[in-house]
Design a protein around this nucleic acid. Structure first.
Length: 554
RNA sequence: GGCCUGUUGGUCAAGUGGUUAAGACGCCGCCCUCUCACGGCGGAAACAGGGGUUCGACUCCCCUACAGGCUACCA
């Protein structure tokens, strides 16, 4: 085809569409005025109605990369695949990420008319005209052409290629519509046959190029040679084409995306080149992995079988979003942990985040580590912050007893102080999440009967004797020291050693030591062998409840 | 099958030709101690395997194994 024929074809293909010119769009969407180190990043999810930990991980990387140097972070909805679209997905994305403190500077969460949304629209299905403008340009320049192959025909070619053990795809001699004449195309068009628009690749199968990934470093890749589809038969762009057009026009500087896209970098490079765009920097991240409990192997975290993959899991279990963020940051940049330890009072966002420091192989999601982080972070948070958090959780997800108890601010704070060790030299680190925290304290608001009890390690007779002695001598007004002295007296009366060294020297002379007596009382009062300071617990639950529970244990 | 990517203790990970191969979680032991938690001290535990290159390889090259990805008119 000649140059004028390309132009004619472009006119026919996009006849009747009121399209702007590429230049007009370039003018409409000027570059942001940003500092030298500032990056523009984006989160570009498909509205599938499901958002998971991997999305959060990725979103946090994007958000940090943008805000580390006053860049911009926007939300674009990639809804070019109608089959995946689910109602309410956008709201879910915004709400879920918002819960973890991720918010966008621009994007699909705001109306197009909002003054910050200068690159609107941010939803791909509303950008059809833009894609067509640039597709038309490619046709005019001979860099794109219509292909009338049916899916069956393509399937047959693929089978043939597989049988012949050659590279599959629409390229070279297999690209049958690549060099058809204008007349033949016109005939098909006149017959109303559906077609896709394909890129006319100029790649050389022999050539490789060095691509510099921000995370992986230099990667050697072959040039793209396949005539990929850029516009599907319904006129909607494929991911590849939309990516090139959108990230250029939205002036994205850094594309952070999953490693599964690395293999399509050659396609993207050719697309940017053919459109005359400067490609953005790319950072391909590894996926979050987990140990498969069945095989023991490392595998990708899957939304189907791993509840901890779902963001709602963390909300329902009552993990504080701050803890999740700290954990994700330690996965993102391994020196974050040390920084955080050395700068406990600094805002998390002051950490010098960099995509270059991201790990290039898949991190294993480690529940143990997460829990450890939760315990540490919660021990650092202000008690009122935690109290508000626990209360909100209890009121939404708690049992009736929990709701009733935590509705009382005084009681809740008292319980919390106990478990956090507020006011002591060091804070305790018992609390992991709200569900576990309330379970830990359950004896404060449940009846003895409603709770499973740890076993007593002394026989029934001795147990009753100890508890009776305890009840007889107990005085609510005793302070912690007096209370413990009485416990030692009971120990002595009941044949226990009150001196640990003495006991260790002659264990056979005693029934045990003071701690064993304390354990009997502890299990009777709380149902647990391990709790924080018993005296403190008694003074939170009150004498009446204490006596009730002991009576139940006798 | 082809093409990419990755592989340091159980886990997360520093490390970029010369290190006693950090640190964190977990685990074990001891101390503290009314139990637990906290805290302190100590311990076991690693460069996937094989060839090169080099005076010298965890670091560079090749092969193998394993894991993951891509190979759609899905993203």
């Amino acid at each position: 085809m000649t140059e004028s024929e390309y132009k004619e074809l472009a006119e026919i293909l996009f006849e009747g569409e009121d399209l702007k010119t590429p230049e007009e769009y370039e003018e409409m969407y000027p570059y942001r005025k940003l500092g030298k180190k500032a990056e523009v990043t984006r989160l570009a999810p498909s509205p599938t109605g499901f958002i998971h930990l991997g999305n959060l991980y990725s979103a946090l990387a994007d958000e940090r990369a943008a805000h580390a140097h006053d860049g911009s972070f926007f939300l674009r909805i990639e809804d070019t695949d109608a089959k995946r679209k689910v109602d309410g997905a956008l709201e879910l994305i915004i709400e879920s990420l918002g819960y973890f403190g991720i918010s966008f500077d621009e994007g699909a969460h705001l109306p197009d008319t909002d003054s910050v949304n200068v690159y609107a629209p941010y939803t791909q299905s509303e950008r059809r005209g833009i894609y067509h403008t640039f597709a038309k340009k490619l046709v005019e320049e001979g860099r794109a052409y219509p292909c009338f192959c049916t899916e069956e025909e393509l399937e047959a070619v693929r089978n043939k290629q597989e049988a012949a053990k050659v590279l599959t795809g629409y390229y070279g001699e297999f690209a049958v519509w690549r060099d058809k004449g204008l007349d033949e195309i016109k005939a098909k068009l006149a017959a109303g046959e559906p077609y896709v628009l394909r890129l006319r690749s100029e790649g050389d199968p022999e050539k490789e190029f060095i691509f510099k990934d921000e995370i992986k470093g230099e990667v050697k890749l072959p040039e793209n040679i396949t005539d990929i589809v850029i516009l599907k038969k319904d006129g909607i762009p494929t991911y590849h084409f939309a990516h090139a057009v959108d990230d250029h026009l939205m002036r994205t500087t850094l594309v952070i995306r999953g490693g599964e896209w690395l293999a399509s970098v050659p396609v993207h490079m050719e697309l940017f080149e053919s459109l005359g765009f400067k490609p953005p920097k790319y950072a391909h991240t590894a996926h979050l992995m987990k140990i498969d409990p069945e095989t023991g192997g490392k595998r990708k975290l899957s939304k189907r079988s791993d509840p901890e993959m779902s963001l709602s899991f963390y909300k329902e279990e009552g993990y504080h979003p701050h803890c999740i963020k700290v954990y994700l940051m330690t996965l993102l940049n391994s020196d974050f942990e040390e920084w955080h330890r050395n700068n406990p009072d600094s805002d998390l966002n002051d950490f010098p985040f960099s995509v270059k420091k991201m790990n290039n192989s898949g991190a294993l999601f480690d529940m143990d580590k997460l829990e450890n982080i939760c315990k540490n972070e919660l021990s650092l948070l202000d008690e009122n912050v935690i109290a508000d958090f626990l209360k909100a959780w209890a009121l939404e997800y708690g049992t009736d007893a929990q709701k009733a108890y935590f509705a009382d601010e005084e009681k809740m704070l008292a319980a919390l102080r106990l478990y956090m060790g507020v006011g002591q030299k060091r804070r305790r680190k018992d609390l992991v999440n709200a569900r576990q925290a309330l379970e830990l304290m359950s004896y404060l608001f449940e009846d003895a009967a409603a709770q499973e009890s740890d076993p007593f390690r002394v026989d029934e007779e001795l147990r009753k004797a100890i508890l009776q002695d305890y009840l007889d001598t107990f005085s609510y007004t005793d302070d912690n020291g007096e209370w413990f002295e009485k416990l030692k007296e009971i120990a002595e009366r009941q044949g226990f050693a009150t001196d640990r060294k003495l006991y260790k020297e002659n264990p056979e002379k005693f029934k045990g030591e003071t701690s064993d007596v304390a354990e009997v009382v502890r299990v009777a009062v709380t149902g647990r062998a391990n709790t924080p300071d018993l005296w403190g617990i008694i003074h939170v639950m009150g004498e009446e409840k204490m006596r009730d529970r002991i009576a139940a244990a006798m």
